[in-house]
C-alpha cells in the first residue's frame, strides 16, 4: 500500500518539473507587455489581458488605498472601484497620453480622499492594515495599527490636495515630477503642497505622540 502511494508522488514530481520546463520554454506572452498594451488588448476583447493587468496592478492599488485609509474593507472597496473604472476607461483610452499607473494613482487618491472627507464627521475605528515583515508581537502589531490609523486620521484632517500630495510623496515614495503628472499641477505646486502638508501632519501627530509610543525626550 505504501509502495503504491509512492509511485504517483514520483509521477507528480516529474509532471511538475516538466510543466516548469514548459513554462520556462514558453514565457508568459503578457509578462513583457506594457500596461497600455494589455489595456488595449482587453478593450479588443482579450479577457486574459485583463487578468494579467489585474495581477500586475491590483496589489499596488490596494497598497496605496490601505496606506491612506488604514482600513482593509475600505481599501478593498477603493481598489475594486479603481480597477472597475479602468475597465470602463479601456475603450476610450487615449494611447500615449498618460501611463496606466499614473491614471490609477490619480483615481485611487481621489477615491481615498473622498472617504477621508466623509470620515471627518466621525473617526472610523475598525481597521486594519497588516504589518509585513517578521512576526511582530501582538503588542507591536497593535502599536503599528494605532499609528497607521492615526496617520490616516491626520491625512483626513488636511486639505484634500495636501493629503494627496503628502501620501503620494511619503507613503508611495513617488518623485515630485511624478506627483505633478498624477495631480496635473506644476512641480513647484507639488513642493509647496507636500511641505505644507507634512508640517500640518507633524503638528496634528504631535498631540498623539505618547499614545503612539514616541517619547518626548
Amino acid at each position: 500500500m505504501a509502495g503504491g502511494r509512492r509511485a504517483p508522488a514520483i509521477c507528480q514530481e516529474y509532471k511538475i518539473s516538466v510543466a516548469q520546463e514548459l513554462m520556462n520554454a514558453m514565457p508568459d506572452p503578457f509578462a513583457r507587455a506594457p500596461d497600455e498594451a494589455l489595456l488595449i488588448a482587453f478593450a479588443n476583447g482579450d479577457a486574459e489581458a485583463a487578468r494579467a493587468l489585474t495581477v500586475r496592478l491590483l496589489p499596488r492599488v490596494l497598497a496605496q488605498a490601505t496606506r491612506m485609509l488604514a482600513n482593509t474593507a475600505e481599501a478593498e472597496d477603493v481598489a475594486q472601484e479603481s480597477m472597475i473604472r479602468l475597465w470602463k476607461q479601456a475603450t476610450e483610452w487615449r494611447q500615449g497620453e498618460a501611463l496606466v499607473s499614473t491614471w490609477l494613482y490619480r483615481v485611487t487618491a481621489n477615491l481615498c480622499t473622498d472617504i477621508l472627507r466623509k470620515r471627518r464627521g466621525g473617526v472610523s475605528l475598525d481597521q486594519i492594515a497588516e504589518p509585513t515583515d517578521g512576526t511582530p508581537s501582538v503588542a507591536d502589531q497593535m502599536q503599528t495599527n494605532t499609528r497607521m490609523q492615526a496617520l490616516s486620521d491626520a491625512l483626513a484632517a488636511l486639505p484634500e490636495r495636501q493629503a494627496q500630495a503628502v501620501a503620494l510623496r511619503h507613503l508611495e515614495g513617488l518623485s515630485n515630477p511624478e506627483i505633478a503628472q498624477i495631480m496635473d499641477i506644476s512641480v513647484r505646486s507639488v513642493e509647496s503642497l507636500t511641505a505644507r502638508g507634512k508640517r500640518a501632519l507633524a503638528d496634528i501627530m504631535a498631540g498623539r505622540k505618547a499614545e503612539l509610543g514616541y517619547d518626548d525626550d
Binding site: 491590483l58 496589489p59 490596494l62 497598497a63 488605498a65 490601505t66 496606506r67 481599501a75 478593498e76 481598489a79 492594515a129 497588516e130 504589518p131 509585513t132 515583515d133 503599528t144 499609528r147 497607521m148 492615526a150 496617520l151 511619503h170 507613503l171 508611495e172 515614495g173 501627530m205 503612539l212 514616541y214
Partner: peptide
C-alpha cells in the same frame, strides 16, 4: 518613522 512603517505595509489582494 510612521511614514516608513506605512510604506512597509503589504497588501496582498
Amino acid at each position: 518613522d510612521i511614514f516608513a512603517q506605512a510604506r512597509a505595509v503589504a497588501s496582498t489582494p
